[in-house]
Nucleic acid binder design. Structure first.
Length: 688
DNA sequence: TCGCGTCCCATTTTT
DNA sequence: TGGGACGCGA
């Protein structure tokens, strides 16, 4: 039993064994907070003999949740009965049970950002995508900020309340919720339904929250509602790592916690076990430039390690070559490339592919966001929830079966008038409009639905999906598409169908799969087995992760810190983001800036960002890395080359004499490597 | 209703 | 560059 505590330092031990009142743990990066939380779960179960079912451990990302689960179960097998999950998944599960109090059936759909957009634009077709997105963002902010949704308190949002109300009514009609609703609805139910609150409160006696600094006001309200006298509450957070303010996260929740809950004890974990002193020194000096912090000092007993490297390059190609060299020393999986925006991954993907370096891309384009996959998902959403208007619009006439916009609108209007679901209203219109003539073509759609609905109870998910794919005509549709566009959508669908096999038979299975898909953006990629690969990842996604070697790319003006954040006065949040990124590194840390980058097919030049300058000061380092060669006629930007690929500009030249190599980048984005002989160039190798 | 051509714009970050 | 929105003609 006591071996649970073995290897913990005294402060960590205190945090694990603490069991009175409420506990606030302020934990610096790499201070072993996940270890503390998971050990605490195991300790509660094994040492204090707490029923694992009465423990609730929540965090914000699925990745963090599954890691927490794995580690807790490793320490104490009974932890598998504990709810270790994300805020959103937990609330979704509760809403399946108690959603009637919010006007939902247990088959409600969960709308992602795209679905919300489709729904909103069906209500307000006059808005462009951009305008609609803006309004939806405001609505989301409101939902994250204010449980009672008093628009007046958010007057600075300048949101017309009718948008909100109409959108919300449409969601309810569709028996659907958006991400924010998951938490909002359940919190409201707890607030307004004492008997539900009683049941939940008597079940979850121990509540642990990780990454608490990322919670927003509604989540704080949820905690308040989950709490009852006798509940043990423990939250772990670090104000310096709060990076979700744009989503409504309130650092102040850390202060509020001590104010609201009784007799809160505070424990600080400041010893870092992850990084070298050099890395910590740089990261601490950087974050010290922020004004709004509680302040804490982190330290380590680790050995010195390499210096932090600030690297400047004059071209993208140089940068990628540098990264490739770092990557190649040691295992691929030792290195992670971190960047501010998803779009930045593209250059690395192309470059690494060309250089034969295996990589995995974390969380960028979600597998389930592909159109062909979304089609199938829409089908099962609609079969489970025939009120789901977004799914309906997606599948009703794809491929074209004579059930276009006009007929769809009729069906939608009819369903709203009579309060029936969309399948029923489509059926009525198709048959009713013409008792003598042939029924409207939309009857085809109705027949398909009826067919598939029978299949739900009888077929395993993969068989069901395959059936839908073939019978709906989507298979033919995408076969044509693949032929005409050289795409591989059919393969993607196959992969999806294979994957679905594990979910078994029936409505429950279907709904479990849907929920996983909509709430866990990453998990399709996790199954791929080859482990020794470089990680390409946005900084937001690195929360809780660590790597021996970290390269933070793109300290360019307007990129990091982002131009938008400067406009919005969010510089401190960006600095926290950089702090999070830097403190992911265990052994080696490099930060790169690149003065010329190819964007949208054209070369653009960038200045170095504020952060690059701050780090120059901090590291007191003359940046190194740019390796333009010197003595030959082939200089960057000089000389234009033309062949079948179009016009190209010299981007780099290395070596001398016979060994001289010249890199030429064409305006198409194609990059060639050339051997200059006499006055002509010969293609020796295509690199991209 | 649908397919094709043209034009325009683009990149925060996630559940 | 390239994907999406929009308009026009069949």
């Amino acid at each position: 039993m006591l071996n649970l505590l073995e290897g913990l330092n005294p402060v960590q031990r205190e945090a694990v064994t603490h069991d009175k009142n409420s506990l606030l743990i302020l934990a610096g990066p790499g201070s072993g907070k996940t270890r503390v939380i998971t050990t605490k779960v195991a300790y509660l179960i094994q040492e204090l003999r707490i029923d694992p079912n009465s423990i609730l451990a929540v965090t914000f990302t699925n990745k963090a949740a599954s890691e927490m689960r794995e580690r807790a179960v490793a320490l104490s097998p009974e932890a598998r009965f504990t709810s270790i999950t994300t805020f959103h998944s937990f609330c979704a599960r509760m809403l399946r049970k108690y959603g009637t109090f919010a006007g939902l059936t247990s088959d409600f759909s969960i709308y992602d950002t795209d679905d919300s957009m489709t729904l909103f634009r069906s209500l307000y077709p006059e808005f462009t995508k951009k305008e609609a997105g803006e309004i939806l963002r405001k609505i989301s902010k409101l939902k994250n900020f204010d449980i009672d949704l008093r628009l007046s308190t958010m007057s600075n949002l300048s949101l017309d309340s009718s948008y909100y109300e109409k959108y919300q009514a449409a969601l309810l009609r569709a028996n659907a919720v958006d991400f924010d609703d998951l938490i909002l609805h359940f919190t409201k139910i707890l607030k307004n339904q004492p008997e539900v609150k009683m049941r939940i409160a008597s079940q979850y006696r121990y509540i642990l929250v990780d990454e608490y600094q990322d919670s927003n006001l509604v989540q704080f309200e949820l905690l308040k509602q989950l709490y009852s006298p006798g509940t043990y509450l423990c939250v772990v957070g670090d104000e310096d790592q709060s990076i979700y303010r744009f989503r409504g996260a309130e650092i102040e929740n850390i202060l509020r916690f001590s104010e609201y809950f009784k007799d809160v004890e505070t424990i600080r974990l400041e010893q870092n076990y992850r990084s070298t002193p050099n890395i910590l020194k740089a990261a601490s000096a950087l974050i010290a430039k922020n004004e709004s912090r509680l302040g804490k000092s982190i330290w380590t007993e680790n050995s010195e390690g390499k210096e932090v490297g600030l690297k400047y390059f004059s071209s993208n190609i140089d940068e990628i070559e540098f990264c490739a060299n770092v990557v190649r020393e040691g295992s691929y999986s030792d290195t992670a490339i971190l960047y501010r925006t998803n779009a930045q991954s593209f250059a690395f993907e192309r470059g690494f592919t060309a250089l034969g370096i295996p990589y995995k891309l974390v969380g960028a384009l979600r597998f389930f966001d592909r159109a062909e996959i979304k089609d199938l998902i829409a089908w099962i959403s609609f079969l489970l929830n025939p009120c789901d208007i977004v799914a309906f619009k997606r599948i009703a006439n794809k491929p074209a079966r004579g059930f276009g916009g006009v007929a769809q609108k009729k069906a939608i209007a009819q369903s709203q008038e009579s309060g029936t679901d969309l399948l029923q209203s489509t059926r009525e219109i198709a048959l009713g409009a013409s008792s003598k003539k042939k029924p409207h073509k939309s009857i085809e759609f109705v027949k398909l639905c009826e067919l598939f609905m029978q299949d739900i109870e009888n077929l395993t998910l993969d068989k069901l999906l395959l059936n839908i794919f073939i019978e709906s005509g989507l298979k033919m549709f995408y076969e044509d598409h693949d032929k005409n566009n050289d795409s591989s959508k059919i393969d993607n669908v196959k992969e999806f169908i294979d994957f679905s096999a594990r979910y078994g038979v029936g409505r429950e299975a279907l709904s479990a799969m849907l929920e996983r898909i909509s709430l866990d953006s990453q998990f399709a990629q996790e199954q791929e087995g080859n482990d020794d690969v470089v990680t390409l990842i946005t900084i937001h996604n690195t929360k809780g992760l660590e790597f021996p070697k970290v390269i933070i790319s793109g300290l360019e003006e307007g990129i990091f810190p982002s131009a938008r954040s400067l406009e919005n006065n969010d510089l401190e949040e960006e600095r926290r983001l950089l702090y999070v990124a830097m403190t992911r590194a265990q052994q080696e840390l490099y930060l790169t800036y690149c003065s010329n980058k190819n964007i949208w097919g054209f070369e653009r030049s960038f200045g170095k960002s504020l952060f690059a300058k701050e780090l120059e000061d901090i590291l007191n380092q003359t940046p190194s890395g740019s390796n333009d060669s010197t003595d030959h006629p082939y200089k960057r930007g000089q000389g234009v080359y033309q062949d079948d690929y179009g016009y190209g500009v010299i981007t780099k030249a290395v070596g001398e004499g016979k060994n001289l190599l010249v890199f030429v980048q064409f305006e198409t984005g194609f990059v060639g490597r050339f051997l200059p002989e006499f006055d002509s160039l010969e293609l020796v190798e295509s690199r991209y």
